[in-house]
Simulated assay, not measured.
Amino acid sequence: MIHPLDPRTAPGSTLYAARPAEISPAEWRARVDLAAAYRLASRHGWDDQIYTHISMRVPDRDNAYLMNPYGFRFEEITASNLLLVDTQGNVIDGTGRRGNPTGFAIHGAVHHARADAHCVMHLHNDAIIAVGALKQGLLPLSQHAMRFWNHISYHDYEGLALSAAEQGRLLASLGNNSAMLLRNHGSLTCGRTVAEAYVLMFDLDKSCMTQLAAMSASDQLVQPSDEVLHQTQANLALGPTPDGELEWASLLRKLLREEPDFNT
């Protein structure tokens, strides 16, 4: 169904109008969505200078995904300046530009292992790093956090370099979950769409900020019963269709108004 307010489908929308002739419509749509995710992450303060990444599998190419070129801030990302790489970390767009090797290691491993992980977000969010450094990790203290109850992974920090052996351990830590705290390091979410990975990251970040605020105010924390947590988590769990579609359409409208160069 065409929604008159969804810039991805609305008649006359300029969202995808700048597509170069040499890039397929499917890849260009992925590029525009991914560039939007970078700009939105920058607005939240989720960027860490030039050192974190959001990647998107290219819909019409095997073993290829898009991510930011090394040295660009999130606010500088556009649909056309994203890198095209393979799951082994090789830049295959013919430009000779560089990517961050650690980013290739994390994103390439997840894209290769998880068919459902079309978009992978790896960030260094302040609140998530702090909660990941707590022994108890994320607690179900807010409704946002309850969606992750018993459905979030943890991976212990092993240093800056991500070896092939650690790639395997990271994937084992992630399992079938769509969100993970990288202890002493950052966050990871993966989604069937950019929208799904983004809303998961939004909820995870808000969950951690809320937990830190509650813990700083008192050590007398109130947690719902396991029965309520089971019910709430089931209600908020990901379903058969990707989450975040309505939210994503509204966010794209905002970017088209305020940062109209992201889709160029």
Rank of each mutant, 00 (worst) to 15 (best):
G168T: 04
G175F: 06
D47G: 02
D62A: 14
S80Y: 07
W149A: 08
R169C: 05
T52W: 02
Y70K: 10
E259A: 13
T264I: 07
F74K: 00
V85M: 08
L40S: 00
D47N: 11
E196W: 07
R73G: 15
M56Y: 09
D261R: 14
P25G: 01
T210V: 15
S250F: 12
I2T: 14
S225V: 10
E75H: 12
N100W: 02
E247Y: 13
F72L: 15
T232S: 13
I129M: 14
R8H: 11
D86Y: 04
E247I: 12
L5D: 13
A249N: 10
Q136S: 15
W248K: 00
A17G: 11
S187K: 05
Y16G: 06
G94S: 07
W149K: 06
M201R: 09
S163E: 09
Y38Q: 06
N235E: 15
N176G: 13
Y38E: 00
R43H: 04
Q231A: 15
F202D: 14
G71P: 04
A161P: 03
A237K: 14
Y154T: 12
A30Y: 07
V120R: 01
M121R: 06
C208G: 08
G175Y: 02
R73H: 15
Q88N: 10
A117C: 07
E245T: 12
H151V: 10
G103V: 09
H230I: 14
L5M: 10
F74Y: 15
A130D: 12
M215N: 03
E166H: 01
M209N: 07
A10D: 03
M121Q: 09
F104C: 03
A197K: 04
S173A: 14
Y70A: 11
Y198G: 05
L256W: 00
W248Q: 03
L134Q: 15
H112V: 06
C119E: 08
S218M: 07
C208S: 09
A127P: 07
V85G: 01
P11L: 11
N263M: 02
L34W: 02
G159A: 08
R169G: 01
D226N: 15
L188P: 02
T241D: 14
R253H: 11
A41H: 06
L15Y: 04
A133T: 08
N125H: 14
G89N: 07
A21H: 13
V131Q: 05
H155K: 04
D93Q: 09
D33M: 04
H3K: 12
M56H: 12
Y38W: 00
A109M: 06
W149L: 10
S225C: 11
W46K: 08
D33R: 00
A130L: 10
S55F: 03
G132Q: 06
R8W: 03
K254V: 11
I77D: 04
V199Q: 07
W248T: 09
G89R: 01
